[in-house]
């Protein structure tokens, strides 16, 4: 196993899958400003995907491109965390998912700017600015919707309850992480848990939401061992042209 390749796929697939999910909102957000913000977020994430997967393809050295990786791998070769492939459901869940990810991503990318791998530190430097903006927005929205009305509070609580068991998969540690840590490429994701936890707690307090009393974590996405049923459907849509017309240029 090429640990660096695995590591890069995890980074790239997280933003690809979340970017895709976010793009599903096109033209149907609760307000025009939200349409703009969602398209902007999706655009950032797809841009970041390109950087990660291009590097992954180079590291793999099998002649595959970033597009080959995005559009011609099947579900079991995807390395995104499960939370990001869960369906949008409603605006509340979409923004809650975004926040739980952003709260990790800002700390994570900040740490990656110190990576010994200069390419990774460059990607992190570019991406972290976008992630900070995403976090600012998703955090404000969570607080507004948690605080807003009785109905919105109920919906946000339901979103948090649903996503909570998925939220911390991203901070689990395995051999790939150990190898990255050893080589000074990345910190252990578990090192992000404390700042993540603090940010999530303070945000949920401000949003009048209760963090579920459970430490259970769904896993299997970042290792590719067991994705949700949702990913296959997403890929069926996303990959349809590349799969249907092999070798065509678009």
């Amino acid at each position: 196993m090429n640990a660096l390749f695995e590591f890069l796929l995890r980074q790239g697939d997280n933003v690809l899958v979340l970017g895709h999910r976010t793009s599903e909102w096109c033209g149907t957000a609760p307000a025009l400003e939200e349409d703009i913000a969602l398209a902007n977020t999706a655009l950032d994430l797809i841009g970041q995907t390109k950087l990660w997967l291009e590097y992954a393809a180079e590291v793999e050295g099998e002649g595959r491109s970033a597009n080959d990786l995005a559009f011609l791998r099947d579900a079991y070769d995807f390395r995104n965390v499960l939370m990001l492939e869960t369906p949008n459901e409603d605006y509340g869940r979409t923004l809650m998912r975004q926040f739980l990810f952003d709260a990790f991503q800002v700390h994570w990318l900040t740490a990656l700017t110190d990576s010994k791998d200069s390419r990774i530190s460059e990607i992190a430097m570019k991406s972290v600015k976008e992630a900070q903006y995403h976090l600012e927005r998703s955090r404000d929205t969570i607080i507004a919707l948690g605080d807003g009305t009785e109905l919105s509070n109920k919906k946000m609580q339901a979103a948090l309850d649903y996503l909570w068991p998925y939220a911390r998969e991203i901070m689990l540690v395995d051999d790939v992480d150990e190898a990255m840590h050893k080589d000074g490429i990345a910190p252990l994701p578990s090192e992000i848990l404390a700042p993540w936890d603090a940010l999530v707690k303070s945000t949920m307090r401000d949003a009048y939401l209760t963090i579920p009393d459970s430490n259970f974590v769904h896993k299997g996405g970042r290792t590719g061992q067991r994705h949700t049923e949702h990913l296959g459907h997403m890929l069926a849509t996303m990959q349809v042209l590349q799969r249907s017309y092999p070798g065509a240029t678009w």
Binding site: A29, P30, D90, I143, A144, L145, T149, S152
Partner: peptide, 15 residues
Amino acid sequence: AWDEGAWVRDAMMAH
């Protein structure tokens, strides 16, 4: 989209 987004707009205003 407009109807399903009503709760979000209402909540933003209330907040």
